[in-house]
Amino acid sequence: GTEIELESKNGQREHYTATSEDEARKIIEKAVRRGIKRIELRGASEQLIRDMQEIAKQIGLQYRTDGSL
């Protein structure tokens, strides 16, 4: 699965493990709508990382991946 670590603007951290790319995408989209400061992805697919970079650029988000592409 993909591990997703979120940090909201007030510094609250949340951790999710998505079993599918679809689920990961839903978690990320929800977080973005809620207003999130930072997202870290571990074990994400190349496609998901590309999507994440696109989203991050659009809304000026900090993100990090573990680089295991």
Rank of each mutant, 00 (worst) to 15 (best):
G1T: 14
G1I: 15
G1C: 14
G1Q: 12
G1A: 14
T2I: 12
T2K: 01
T2D: 02
T2W: 10
E3A: 07
E3I: 10
E3D: 09
I4S: 01
I4M: 03
I4D: 01
E5R: 12
E5T: 15
E5Y: 13
E5C: 14
E5F: 14
L6F: 11
L6W: 13
L6N: 01
L6Q: 01
E7L: 15
E7M: 08
S8Q: 09
S8V: 11
K9T: 13
K9A: 11
K9H: 13
N10K: 05
N10T: 12
N10I: 05
N10W: 10
N10V: 04
G11K: 02
G11M: 02
G11H: 03
G11A: 04
G11D: 03
G11E: 01
G11W: 01
G11N: 04
Q12C: 14
Q12L: 12
R13F: 09
R13K: 12
R13G: 02
R13L: 13
R13Q: 08
R13A: 05
E14Q: 08
E14M: 11
E14D: 05
E14P: 01
E14C: 14
E14N: 05
E14S: 07
H15D: 02
H15T: 10
H15P: 01
Y16Q: 02
Y16A: 02
Y16S: 01
T17K: 10
T17V: 13
T17S: 11
T17A: 07
T17G: 03
T17Y: 14
A18Q: 04
A18F: 15
T19A: 13
T19S: 11
T19P: 06
T19E: 09
S20I: 02
S20K: 03
S20C: 04
S20T: 12
E21D: 15
E21M: 06
D22N: 05
D22A: 14
D22C: 11
D22I: 11
D22L: 06
E23P: 00
E23H: 05
E23S: 05
E23L: 04
E23F: 04
A24T: 03
A24P: 00
A24D: 00
R25E: 00
R25Y: 09
R25A: 03
K26F: 10
K26G: 09
K26M: 12
K26W: 09
K26I: 10
K26R: 12
I28H: 00
I28G: 00
I28W: 02
I28N: 00
I28Y: 02
E29K: 07
E29D: 08
E29S: 07
E29R: 08
E29T: 06
K30L: 13
K30Q: 14
K30H: 12
K30F: 11
A31V: 07
A31Y: 06
V32K: 02
V32Y: 05
V32M: 15
R33E: 11
R34F: 05
G35V: 01
G35C: 06
G35Q: 04
G35K: 03
G35P: 03
G35H: 05
G35S: 04
G35T: 02
I36M: 05
I36C: 10
I36Q: 01
I36H: 01
I36E: 01
K37A: 10
K37C: 14
K37S: 07
R38K: 11
R38V: 06
R38T: 06
R38E: 04
I39L: 09
I39W: 03
I39A: 01
E40A: 13
E40Q: 13
E40T: 14
L41Y: 02
L41W: 02
L41I: 13
R42K: 11
R42I: 08
R42N: 06
G43Y: 06
G43H: 09
G43N: 14
A44W: 02
A44V: 04
A44L: 02
A44G: 05
A44P: 03
A44H: 03
S45D: 03
S45A: 02
S45H: 03
S45W: 03
E46Q: 11
E46D: 09
E46F: 04
E46V: 10
Q47C: 09
Q47A: 12
Q47T: 09
Q47G: 08
L48C: 04
L48G: 00
L48Q: 01
I49S: 06
I49M: 10
I49G: 03
I49K: 07
R50N: 08
R50S: 08
R50I: 08
R50L: 11
R50H: 12
R50C: 07
R50T: 07
D51E: 11
D51K: 08
D51T: 10
D51L: 13
D51V: 15
D51M: 14
M52G: 00
M52F: 10
Q53P: 03
Q53I: 15
Q53S: 11
E54W: 07
E54K: 08
E54M: 08
E54R: 08
E54D: 10
E54F: 09
E54L: 07
E54P: 02
I55L: 14
I55H: 04
I55N: 02
A56K: 04
A56H: 04
A56E: 03
K57D: 11
K57H: 12
K57G: 07
K57W: 10
K57Y: 07
K57F: 08
Q58F: 09
Q58I: 13
Q58N: 08
Q58W: 06
I59V: 14
I59H: 15
G60L: 08
G60P: 04
G60Y: 05
L61S: 05
L61A: 08
Q62F: 10
Q62I: 15
Q62A: 10
Q62D: 14
Y63K: 03
Y63F: 15
R64M: 15
R64I: 15
R64K: 13
T65H: 14
D66G: 04
D66T: 04
D66W: 02
G67D: 13
G67V: 10
G67Y: 03
G67I: 07
G67K: 03
S68Q: 10
S68M: 07
S68W: 14
S68P: 07
S68V: 12
L69R: 02
L69A: 08
L69N: 09
L69K: 04
